[in-house]
Design a protein around this nucleic acid. Sequence first.
DNA 1: TTATTTTACGCAAACGTTTGAACGAGTTAA
DNA 2: TTAACTCGTTCAAACGTTTGCGTAAAATAA
Lengths: 341, 341
Amino acid sequence: MLKKSVTIKEIAKELNLSVSTISRALHDHPSISAATRLKVKQVAQALHYEPNQAAVHFQKGKTFTIGVILPELSETFFAEALSTIEDIAYKRGYTILLGQSHDDEEKEKLLAEKMRAHRVEGLIVSLAKNTTDYSHFEQLRKYHIPVLYFDRIPPLKNIHHVSCNIETGSTEAVNYLLKQGHRNIALINGPASLLASKQRREGYIKALQKNRLKFDPALVVNCDLTEKGTKEALETLICLKRKPSAIIAFNDYVSSYAVKHAANIGLKINEDICFVSFANSPINQFMQYPPLASVEQFPAVQGQKAIDTLLDIINNKTEEEAYYRVVIDSELIEHQRNEIS
Amino acid sequence: MLKKSVTIKEIAKELNLSVSTISRALHDHPSISAATRLKVKQVAQALHYEPNQAAVHFQKGKTFTIGVILPELSETFFAEALSTIEDIAYKRGYTILLGQSHDDEEKEKLLAEKMRAHRVEGLIVSLAKNTTDYSHFEQLRKYHIPVLYFDRIPPLKNIHHVSCNIETGSTEAVNYLLKQGHRNIALINGPASLLASKQRREGYIKALQKNRLKFDPALVVNCDLTEKGTKEALETLICLKRKPSAIIAFNDYVSSYAVKHAANIGLKINEDICFVSFANSPINQFMQYPPLASVEQFPAVQGQKAIDTLLDIINNKTEEEAYYRVVIDSELIEHQRNEIS
DNA sequence: TTATTTTACGCAAACGTTTGAACGAGTTAA
DNA sequence: TTAACTCGTTCAAACGTTTGCGTAAAATAA
């Protein structure tokens, strides 16, 4: 059990001062003389005083806890985002209460409730893949718990969010491939319903238009992001009369599936067909044929912006309902080839 | 800010009872009549009463927080372990305070200190790769904070730990390859200093001995687990007069590097050379040539055991110094080939 | 000198909950 | 009839910290 730790009282007794003086001294309150401030701090050090956070939280009526609900911690993107979120939160004296929805809307609801019961002061949420009802989050407003949507955001008007502009990256991806001489560029996209899919598609189309190339709808196929779905999408593409020489995949996972299958059916990767994808995740490093380039979405930066703005919202108790909408640009990263061999 | 939430007092006023009665009623204290217990609970429900955790923590002198220090959240193994740790902890009313050492001993020290200052009631630690000094953790005992080492454990006598018996898996890996007809089986091991490396080596040797095969030290090479190191290890092996037809890699990451390089220098994977590895991590799913089999280390199970025993230790304040040493067996998982195509 | 301001500190209440001790009313034992 | 118990409840203190207000002493102004 936690042994009797030293309290402010003992410092007070030691110095024949009152507890309030100690408290103020430790917080550099101006009405305490520099001399006593010093003495107090010295004694506090000597006694290994550590403020009892539970007491502070209680008395301030704050929990200094912020909730983070993510779909899947084992996706590197989220793990990295969480990492910076946690770092910054800690530096500002906040603790993270973590929850994984595992892409399940029901679990997400439960977590939202749990967070509320725990009195988190704010919430960072990245939505489950198939969440269509957002009431469990919007309800938190009644309890004055600000919600900041992160990366996977809902199509709502009055929300705070931090997300990534996928369109720019998508455009860059196309431009990159055009520069390499490709003219038949396909896109293996995600489910049409996803905002993320729409953005990829938009960027893709805009890049073609900017370059005065015709957009061929046949070259864009949707898939459910599974290995099987990817395989089917790939087959659709290579059966086209206008066979693509390059494919932009929804993300690195999809890219890996596509590469695997393309190689299996005898295509020479990077000769017969090239790949570019999204996420720039570490799995590329383990691939036999990583994509030539991948659109970086900067999970760490997004995480940092997310926690920063949320803490901003929390600490500016101004009821003026302004909505923070932070969007960072994605960016195509070209991969070094053969850096090792 | 957190709006005036309902307190025990308001329930008391509502029912003309004292706060102590309410508190006891809500906790099913035997000295409260069943009738009032019911009434109290009904009113509590109606008013949406939620206990103020900060107040509870404060008054009980407990934080209900347990610290978890991991090397890297983006390694799936740890992410999965954390996932179950968090789940169970939450169910038992505990919150996780998370920290990543990023395999840096200094950061680890800082985190240990931070956890102490935060008054965690216990700590789950998976050591950084190169930590050799454990004093920052052993010091926590002075504050009566139990430390449970997890997976990456130190070579100390009197500690609690949960870890995985790698030896059994290593033996299984060799047996598996022997059954496939391989006689020259190599091992690309990690740094010799690691316990994990020793266990792999032990299992490897024992399997050979059981099968009355001679152990050839040349077939076991150490590497630093980087891509470059793996490449060098592989080259050493294929230059041997006794060229291996199968390689057991330290983990799936190392395996992927080795496969990549082997393919680059013209070897036919699964014909000229086969691979088996450890961790059974999801990256295999994205590989062109995943290992034929991988030793599962059950991160979720380990995580569960870890949090369970730690909570045990915390709540059995018996000062009797018994050390919990939970070891689960690893297990070779054969991968389906070509499940998709 | 006296009046006024400033400086440096102490007093005490408050935050919400838990819990040992006390207490009145009703029941049982003598 | 009184003593001893039981049952259900209340009282009040305690946990460690923060903070509005009060105040004595010192410094300044008149």
